[in-house]
Amino acid sequence: MTSIKKNHVVNCINYANENRLFDKLNNIYKSLPSGDCSGCGNCCMESVGTNLIEFINIYNYLENKPELKKMCLDKIIDYYFLEYIDKKPCPFKDKDNRCMIYEVRPLNCRLFGHWKKEDYNKNLSNVTQRNREYRDLIKSKYGFDISDKVVNYKIEYCETFIPQERYLEKSERLEFADNLMILDSNIYSKGIIDINFKDRGIVEYFIESLLKEDTAYNIKVRVSKDKNVRNRAINRLKKILL
């Protein structure tokens, strides 16, 4: 069972500041090509994969904005515990389709739209197939069905985004991701955070900062199965955690 203890996150933030890792992260962000986005918010519909350095950067940003932090955590809890039954938008998206953490949004958000259509749709097909395989695993293991709406939901290729110069090749997108991995490795190698390295979405990072991973997942499975306990369980968690 793993969790992201608050003092470990604080230690990571201090280490990142002392070693200018946030500056390096921002320099990577600044090196990304720009583009013309309509701001429709159609792409802001999932817990995007996020690096550790990005999580602690977002965490640090929210620590200085307590009201925003509480609002985001409230929506994060809903997103995580209702994920199998209801397709909700990214918890950092407000009612006007604006990103509430736009200044510190993750790399995956910044790269959206910079894909060639062929590459994007191929990746989308792989994601849908993995979702269906995971649905079958959950059915066999816990005996309930993840909503078809959730399993088959697709963020379609954005036809309106216009890159400033050209679409990025896969190797170029991976190079940006590799640069973030180097920053992550710098933190992990110091042993200042007690979590396993694995792919996580931004929602999972925040949930693990509130609850042990196994505890959170067990609750998620139970509330997903039983409609009668769902709202009570989520409201109780919010009272305890927020």
Rank of each mutant, 00 (worst) to 15 (best):
D74K: 14
F144T: 02
L210D: 10
I207G: 10
C40V: 11
I77S: 14
S224A: 13
F161R: 02
K93W: 03
K198Y: 14
I85V: 14
E159M: 02
D136Y: 05
P89M: 00
I85N: 15
V221N: 12
G39K: 02
I58G: 01
F144K: 12
D194R: 09
C44Y: 02
R132N: 10
K93C: 09
E172D: 02
C72F: 10
R200N: 07
N235V: 03
S140V: 04
V223Y: 02
V223P: 06
E103P: 08
C72P: 03
L211C: 05
K122V: 07
G201R: 00
E46K: 06
E46Y: 07
V10E: 07
N27Y: 08
F144P: 07
K212S: 02
I155L: 06
T2M: 08
S31P: 06
E204G: 13
E169Q: 06
N108T: 09
D96I: 15
I195T: 15
E204V: 09
R236H: 11
Y157K: 08
L111R: 02
F92Q: 10
R132D: 08
C72M: 12
D148W: 01
L107A: 11
L241S: 12
R166L: 03
R130Q: 10
V150C: 13
D86M: 13
Y120F: 15
E118D: 13
K227F: 06
A233L: 11
L73D: 00
N126E: 07
N121F: 05
Y59G: 03
L241K: 07
S31D: 05
K87N: 14
L73P: 00
D86K: 15
R222P: 04
A216Q: 01
I240M: 10
V9H: 01
K87R: 12
F92C: 12
F92M: 12
D148Y: 05
E169S: 09
R230M: 13
T2L: 04
D23S: 12
I146H: 02
K93D: 00
L111E: 07
D184A: 11
E18G: 11
G35N: 11
Y102S: 10
A233N: 08
Q164P: 01
Y61L: 10
T50A: 05
K170I: 15
K238N: 11
E46L: 14
G191C: 03
T128I: 15
D226F: 10
P91V: 00
I101Y: 00
K141D: 07
A233I: 03
K30Y: 06
K116S: 13
L241F: 07
I202H: 03
S224P: 10
S125E: 14
I13L: 04
F22K: 05
L211G: 01
G191E: 01
K238C: 08
F81P: 10
S31N: 09
E67H: 08
I77F: 10
E204P: 12
N42A: 13
N235K: 14
G191T: 11
R135E: 15
F197W: 09
L237K: 03
C43N: 04
I234Q: 09
K170H: 03
V203H: 08
I58M: 06
G201E: 01
R98Y: 04
V9R: 02
M45L: 04
N97F: 10
D194F: 06
K88P: 09
T160L: 04
E156D: 12
I53G: 13
L124A: 14
P89A: 00
K225R: 13
S224M: 01
I240H: 09
D96V: 15
